[in-house]
Design a protein around this nucleic acid. Structure first.
Length: 863
RNA sequence: GGACACUUAGUUCAGCGGGAGAACGCUUCCUUCACACGGAAGAGGUCACAGGUUCGAUCCCUGUAGUGUCCACCA
């Protein structure tokens, strides 16, 4: 017997371990069609947040739903080593523990990092379990596993041999805190307060000078020339002349190039080829030296004279002061401009000339773009994210993939000690002693990009690979379309010649109550575990997956989780009722239509419609819409109406009637449990196991199916009428200040008795005594007349004005509806152009409104 | 500078070419045997603004304003 109140913690107890130990999460039933999802591997850097909870719950719903629909579902779990992020955290911890990190070796560091990984992986496992995720742990992967490393090396060598990976000296984004190169998308552009400094560049052997502006004066030590537009009249006289760099006295040529825009700034631009991507192009074009002026930690190097060793910002300040003293500072303008910050360390990134490994993007991007024009295309849900993806693909530049870190996949390149030649190979050369191994590791996203097939053992063509790849569906947030989704697509196309998945389901971000991003600095983060402790995991899951439209952000609102828990309590109690009316020895049978009362037929109709609507939206990954249909069925149709009315037939002496009612109740309940199950597996399992006949677990059940047109539609109208009469009587009581439980005499015309027990239902629901008569008590609106002889009405109605006002309001509404409807029907264009069913619908509406109006007029007359 | 999204009840959000919906909050009433984490009834919205398409627009199109996000090398 169920407790009176749904207690999530009791319900959740033990279920996950039981599912897991019985192997329900393990894929491999070859009799079924496969359905594959790979989890977006969380970083082993910390706790999972609400965003993970959302993301994984969506996947769990899909996995459980598809399994119930009869698929062999593989939901493959795993974690990401998260190069920079993890290395930074581990280093931080080591420093905290007093370890001198400048002295430790790569090997020592890695052993610490692996320990860290084990600890956090354990943590993540616990959270997954708490969330109830149906993950196939037998196939769990880690991005640094040795077989994944083999995939990574294979891909690297393949791309290298195809000429799609190259080593080159280019301007990259340098993170001076982590001391590694970054890719373009790891740089976040923020509005920062800064200044534009205007300096005099004196012309050699002349009293004249040019004014050159810069936001980064410290880079002047790397200047090689000043550039002006050849057509710029004001600078024509300086063509071929030279100027003096006010920072260090270097003589710089004046170069003419139409890259410089006339009228922008001063029209004269300083050129620092080693520290600016545009200047780099110009420097290359004219064959200038490219002096690098920073050390790796962004202090000034030996090229900066007396400023050597200073931090870049200290240098800037001192340099500007020094130039000012010489009288060569024209002005300083405060500005707000976009400055690149490192995604991980948040420090200001320094563009720097550096030798790194790159992926040549154009051919890979083109292949991805081409794919989207074919039938094999990746289907984005919602579709607009395909544009986001394509746009990025069309414009992306070469991808810097080398990182000066230890934690990651080491690049499989070897430098010959004698010749310096580079050997790129999956396995180390046999004469390894003659080589120096590349110390750089790969960008984390390089290995993440192989996730859908590397986790299935590619390049080995295993049974799993053959069966589960390409995967079916990928769920992730729109914030990592560029980082991850796009890279999986082009990596997969290159490696396997297939797209990695059929569908990509994109969701938004979880925000706080005020719509702000959750962040550590704001301290507004919500720990999913706290929410689970408070309301239970099912309530959290239900909240997360039913409160936003696909692709849209969502606010976390505590009250909504609470209301989700209340909904589950409602289902719980409806189950409690149904179970309480089932006799000891009871056999579940298929329903026989001929035994069904009109009410039974009505609820079965509603149920069929609900299953259809829910299934349809589940297939579209629209879990909000799907849950809405179920919610309405549970509250309005099942609990408020059928369940209450079942009490009538259950109290009758007719055994068949009773039996049938129980069968119907049970069918509804079971369907509800099965439909809520993917959202809230714990409570669903608990209720399911309390059903009179059940399998070992709800995880072995099949999703409910619907049959079209099980029963004719006529009964629906009769039942609607019954509800309307009940509503009328309730309203009558309220309007007349009669207590809701006061027994009112209600007189009905005999012909209204639409089916057996009609009056009993009515009586029970309206707390009234129902009598029938053949006299003309029928008002013009229809079939009902409350026995409101004038005395009763007036005596009980304490506020006639209020009642009249209300009725007049209703009257006005009906009149306006009638007018609207008539106007439509009298419009020849509408009648000739609108679809037939719409016209018929409108006729029906007009009729209804006319009847309503009559009824209201009658009531008004009596006041 | 580009791209995308959003603007609907007090709040948070759904929705839709043909009578504006939910949750929470609010008002009134009810402990009646599944549930007071409940029930019944109700108040509350020129669906941002302006044009256009259409027999008909909250919905489709164009533009405007506001908000937000992403992308972009402009000294």
């Amino acid at each position: 017997m169920l407790e009176k109140r749904y207690d999530p913690h009791i319900v959740e107890e033990g279920k996950y371990d039981s599912w897991k130990s019985k192997g329900y999460f393990t894929a491999g039933d070859k009799s079924k069609e496969p359905f594959t999802i790979v989890i977006p591997p969380p970083n082993v850097t910390g706790k999972l947040h609400l965003g993970h909870a959302w993301d994984t719950t969506i996947q769990d719903i899909i996995a459980r739903y598809k399994k119930a629909k009869g698929y062999d579902v593989l939901w493959l779990p795993g974690m990401d080593h998260a190069g920079i992020a993890t290395q930074a955290k581990v280093m931080g911890k080591l420093v905290e523990n007093g370890v001198d990190v400048t002295k430790i070796s790569r090997e020592e560091f890695l052993s610490y990092a692996w320990k860290w990984k084990d600890e956090y992986a354990d943590n993540i496992h616990k959270q997954w379990a708490r969330m109830g995720l149906a993950l196939d742990y037998t196939r769990e992967r880690f991005t640094l596993d040795s077989d994944l490393n083999y995939s990574v090396r294979t891909i690297f060598v393949d791309l290298y041999n195809k000429g799609l990976i190259y080593q080159g000296e280019r301007i990259i984004n340098w993170d001076p805190v982590q001391q590694t190169a970054l890719s373009n998308i790891e740089v976040i552009h923020q509005d920062d307060e800064g200044a534009m400094y205007y300096f005099k560049y004196h012309v050699v052997d002349s009293n004249e000078y040019l004014i050159v502006a810069t936001t980064r004066p410290e880079t002047m030590f790397g200047d090689v020339c000043v550039v002006v537009n050849p057509k710029d009249e004001q600078y024509k006289k300086y063509h071929g002349k030279k100027v003096i760099n006010p920072a260090n006295g270097d003589i710089l040529p004046i170069i003419e190039d139409d890259y410089v825009e006339i009228g922008f700034g001063t029209g004269a631009m300083k050129c620092t080829p080693a520290h600016d991507p545009n200047d780099f192009i110009i420097g290359k074009k004219y064959g200038f030296d490219m002096p690098i002026i920073f050390n790796k930690n962004a202090t000034m190097n030996e090229k900066c004279g007396k400023y050597q060793g200073l931090d870049r910002y200290d240098c800037r300040e001192q340099l500007v002061n020094d130039i000012k003293e010489k009288g060569d500072l024209v002005k300083i303008e405060k500005i707000v401009h976009q400055v690149g910050h490192s995604q991980r360390s948040n420090c200001v990134v320094e563009p720097m000339l550096s030798k790194q490994w790159f992926v040549k993007m154009k051919p890979l991007a083109d292949a991805s773009i081409k794919l989207q024009k074919t039938k094999e295309k990746v289907n984005f849900e919602p579709a607009r994210f395909e544009h986001t993806f394509l746009q990025w693909m069309e414009n992306c530049e070469d991808w810097c993939i080398s990182r000066q870190l230890w934690w990651g996949h080491q690049i499989p390149a070897y430098y010959n000690k004698k010749t310096g030649e580079v050997l790129v190979s999956v396995n180390p050369p046999k004469d390894i002693e003659n080589y120096i191994e590349e110390s750089d590791v790969l960008d984390t996203w390089f290995s993440s990009g192989l996730w859908p097939f590397a986790t299935l053992h590619w390049p080995e063509i295993t049974d799993d690979y053959k069966r589960y790849f390409p995967t079916t569906c990928l769920v992730t947030g729109y914030d990592i379309i560029f980082f991850w989704v796009s890279r999986m697509i082009f990596q997969s196309l290159n490696a396997t010649a297939k797209p990695p998945f059929k569908d990509v389901v994109i969701h938004g971000l979880v925000r706080d109550e005020l719509g702000r991003k959750m962040s550590k600095s704001l301290g507004n983060g919500v720990d999913p575990i706290d929410v689970i402790d408070k309301y239970g995991v099912d309530a959290l899951r239900y909240f997360l997956t039913t409160n936003s439209t696909p692709g849209q952000d969502m606010r976390f609102i505590d009250e909504k989780v609470e209301s989700s828990a209340n909904y589950l309590n409602k289902i719980w109690n409806s189950a409690r009722y149904v179970l309480s009316v089932i006799p000891e020895e009871f056999k579940e049978n298929d329903l026989e239509v001929k035994n069904l009362s009109p009410l039974d037929q009505w609820i079965i109709n509603k149920l069929e419609k609900t299953i259809k609507d829910v299934t349809c939206n589940m297939e579209k990954y629209d879990f909000n819409a799907a849950s809405g249909h179920l919610y309405n069925f549970v509250y309005d149709d099942f609990c408020s109406n059928y369940l209450e009315m079942s009490k009538v037939s259950l109290s009758s002496d007719n055994a068949l009637k009773k039996e049938t009612t129980i069968q119907v109740l049970l069918k509804c309940l079971k369907s509800i449990i099965l439909m809520i199950y993917p959202y809230t597996p714990f409570i669903a399992e608990e209720l399911y196991l309390n059903l009179p006949s059940h399998k070992e677990s709800i995880m072995l059940e099949r999703y409910p199916t619907y049959e079209k047109e099980l029963i004719n539609n006529k009964v629906n109208k009769e039942i609607e009428l019954l509800f309307n009469i009940i509503k009328d009587i309730r309203n009558y009581k309220i309007e007349n200040k009669i207590a809701p439980n006061a027994r009112l005499d209600v007189l009905l015309n005999s012909k209204i008795k639409l089916f057996d027990d009609f009056d009993i239902y009515l009586s029970r629901f309206s707390f009234s005594n129902i009598r029938y008569t053949n006299e003309s008590v029928v008002n013009q609106s229809g079939e009902l007349k409350v026995y409101d002889d004038a005395d009763v009405l007036i005596v009980n109605n304490t506020n006639k004005d209020e009642l009249l006002a209300k009725l007049n309001k209703e009257k006005a509404f009906e009149q306006s509806e009638i007018e609207r409807s008539s106007r439509m029907l009298n419009n020849p264009n509408f009648v000739s152009k609108a679809p037939k069913d719409k016209i018929e619908l409108e006729r029906q509406k007009l009729l209804t409104h006319q009847q309503n109006l009559q009824s209201i007029l009658e009531k008004i007359k009596k006041i």
